[in-house]
Amino acid sequence: MSTAHDLATAVAATRTAGITTPAWAAADPYSDALRTGRGPLFLRRADGWLLPLEVERWCAAADPVDLEVLERCEGAVLDVGCGPGRLVAALAAQGRRVLGIDVSEAAVAQTVRRLGHRERGEGPALLRSVFDPVPGEGGWGTALLMDGNVGIGGDPRALLRRLVQLLVPGGLLIAETVAVDIDERVRVQVVHGSDDRHSAGAPFLWARLGTPALLRHARRAGWRAVGQWTAGGRCFAALRSRSTNSSAEPPKSTAVIRSQRPRNPSADSPVADR
């Protein structure tokens, strides 16, 4: 994807494509939290286990840890599960070609507003599942799975195989992982507040992966690891397709700096057992 015109053309070509929007994407707790920029918001498992969602950080500007990740990006960037668009906005401000996709209409609307576009179709964000048609398939230089978005769909290997299709040969995937060694697939709901059972969204499948689990799935899906690092208490891995011989250098060495917690499910233990 060599020019901004290419990106605009690709977006226009898929603007009216049919998409699959999960029922949870319209869940009032999630949409309301993004509109207000405040939590508390959690993922709740069927057994009552709760995982905090960092709404305030999602809705803030990109922090130093985010910006370090963005410095590693190559070519046009696809932010998968862009949320309210802090990374899309930061990349756009740097003059980078970027597109955010998300299955939440509220998230896409926030991203568009953040960048000053009046209509969803005009800006660098689309209401779209990664498993549906995506603009510029096979032409993205970098894909981002930040803030726990390796959990999308509850099937990490299927997600990784899909991303191979979206990137250029030898393209870069940067994924944020849980800071413990975990490989979990669960059915969860978005809920507002730890005791609120009346404003839960529809159940959906999610996954949580530590770096060892991500690398295991990645090898089987045709990826090779080219870097791992931590920063601000967060863990990241960089991957490339093994189908090409890339001469690009791996991500820069580990830099540990202070920051807030990640946007999506955190790496901490559950905050409540009920």
Results as ranks from 00 to 15, higher is better:
4 A>Y: 07
5 H>V: 13
6 D>A: 15
6 D>G: 10
9 T>Q: 15
11 V>I: 13
15 R>F: 04
16 T>D: 15
16 T>N: 15
16 T>M: 10
17 A>E: 14
22 P>I: 00
25 A>M: 04
32 D>Q: 14
32 D>P: 06
33 A>G: 08
35 R>C: 10
37 G>S: 08
37 G>P: 13
40 P>H: 03
41 L>G: 11
47 D>Y: 04
49 W>G: 14
57 R>S: 12
59 C>Y: 03
59 C>Q: 07
64 P>H: 06
65 V>S: 14
69 V>S: 00
74 E>L: 05
76 A>H: 08
79 D>N: 09
81 G>W: 03
83 G>K: 05
86 R>C: 01
87 L>E: 11
90 A>E: 13
90 A>G: 06
92 A>Q: 11
92 A>P: 06
93 A>K: 14
94 Q>M: 12
95 G>W: 04
98 V>F: 03
98 V>K: 10
100 G>M: 03
101 I>P: 04
101 I>E: 09
101 I>N: 12
101 I>F: 09
107 A>V: 05
108 V>D: 07
110 Q>R: 15
111 T>F: 04
114 R>I: 12
116 G>P: 08
118 R>T: 14
118 R>I: 07
120 R>M: 09
120 R>K: 05
121 G>D: 03
128 R>W: 03
128 R>D: 01
128 R>N: 02
132 D>V: 06
133 P>G: 02
134 V>N: 04
134 V>E: 04
135 P>R: 09
136 G>V: 04
137 E>R: 10
142 T>L: 05
145 L>F: 03
147 D>N: 11
152 I>Q: 07
153 G>P: 01
153 G>N: 02
154 G>H: 09
155 D>L: 05
157 R>P: 00
160 L>T: 02
160 L>G: 01
163 L>M: 09
164 V>H: 13
164 V>D: 10
169 P>D: 12
169 P>E: 12
170 G>E: 02
174 I>K: 00
177 T>S: 06
178 V>Q: 06
180 V>S: 14
181 D>P: 07
181 D>M: 00
181 D>I: 02
188 V>N: 11
196 D>R: 12
197 R>N: 05
197 R>L: 04
199 S>A: 09
201 G>Y: 10
204 F>N: 01
205 L>M: 13
205 L>Q: 14
210 G>C: 07
211 T>N: 06
214 L>T: 02
214 L>W: 05
216 R>W: 10
216 R>V: 15
220 R>F: 10
222 G>L: 11
224 R>C: 14
227 G>M: 14
227 G>L: 12
230 T>Q: 14
231 A>L: 06
232 G>F: 08
234 R>W: 06
235 C>S: 15
236 F>M: 05
237 A>P: 02
238 A>E: 11
238 A>W: 08
242 R>F: 02
244 T>G: 11
249 E>Q: 11
251 P>C: 03
251 P>T: 07
260 Q>C: 13
262 P>N: 01
262 P>E: 00
273 D>M: 09
